[in-house]
Amino acid sequence: MTQSPHSHLIDLPDSALWSGISWMDFARLSARERSATIVVLPLFGFGDWGYGQPLDLEETLGTAVLRHALERPGKNGAHVLVMPPLRFVLGPYVHNVFGIDFETAMELVHEIASGVRAAGFRKLLLFTTSPWNEELADAAGRAMRVKLGIQAFRVSLAALGLDLHPTRSVDRGTVQAAACACYRRGPDAAALSVEAATLREFRPGNFEQPGPVPMRGTLEDSIAAGEKLLAAAGRKLAALCLEIIRRPALPNDGRIAARRPADSPRSASKKA
């Protein structure tokens, strides 16, 4: 695919960016090339997760994992095409910023998925970083399967070993190490001095402000540990992408055939 110079919308290689391909390049893609491509839509929110790092922590971590995954070339001609991140997603607590409501978020994801379908792609991976958007991705994936005939998949940062959930996470220190590796700096001491709100389990729970997570050991130790964690998460994501590409295409171009009255359970019971 021919690439054109442009300002990056996300810090990833040009060859993997949806925004780095011209409309003529899209037009030249064969059906086989499209079927061997996974389109990734990152869902990156903003918020203070208690790590004493900038509010773009989700995007910084998610992009780093994607970069590691893209460094592992796929087999059988598999290709990953990453869309510009959707940065306005669910943010139900005061520690989130720029959050939107569920209905608007669903409409946004559906609109983007419609464009992916119109461009001739059939496999869409929703990559979520915030635990508050995991169920949104599940619901959106089911809706686009029914309405658009898209084969939807969902991978969360938590499933790759970096869980931002304040109480579900087994070890929040792993995210702190990964954050240090991304920013090449330790947490802001002033931010870590904020007293944590009392946390209750999600559903619906109360996460007004996730508790502070201090850095373990020296900055150099944290960066080294974080780089290993990011690389491991990237390997997991690359393996999942390869598994997705090997999934057979949906029959009937994704269209769900209407059930005939004679095929319904009620009709069958009458015949019996």
Rank of each mutant, 00 (worst) to 15 (best):
A152C: 08
W132V: 14
G115L: 09
G77D: 01
L148M: 12
W132P: 01
A64V: 08
L41H: 04
V116N: 06
T63L: 04
L81S: 00
R154D: 02
D138G: 05
R72A: 00
V39W: 11
D163W: 03
F44H: 12
A152I: 12
M144L: 14
Q151P: 02
I150D: 06
R117C: 02
G45P: 07
H95A: 05
F127P: 02
V94I: 15
L61M: 12
G62M: 05
K75Q: 04
V80I: 12
H68T: 03
F88M: 13
S130N: 13
M106P: 09
T63M: 10
S30H: 04
A119K: 05
I112R: 12
K123C: 03
T128W: 14
A158Y: 05
G45C: 13
M24Q: 15
L43I: 14
L41S: 11
V116G: 09
T60K: 15
F127C: 02
D101W: 15
F153M: 07
V155D: 11
D101S: 11
G149S: 12
F46H: 05
Q53R: 14
V82A: 04
L41K: 06
G45F: 05
A158H: 02
K147P: 00
L162S: 10
G77W: 00
A139E: 14
E135V: 06
S35N: 13
R142Y: 02
S22Y: 08
D138F: 03
E107S: 13
E107R: 15
K75D: 00
V82G: 03
R122H: 10
L148F: 14
L55Q: 12
A31D: 07
V89K: 06
A36N: 07
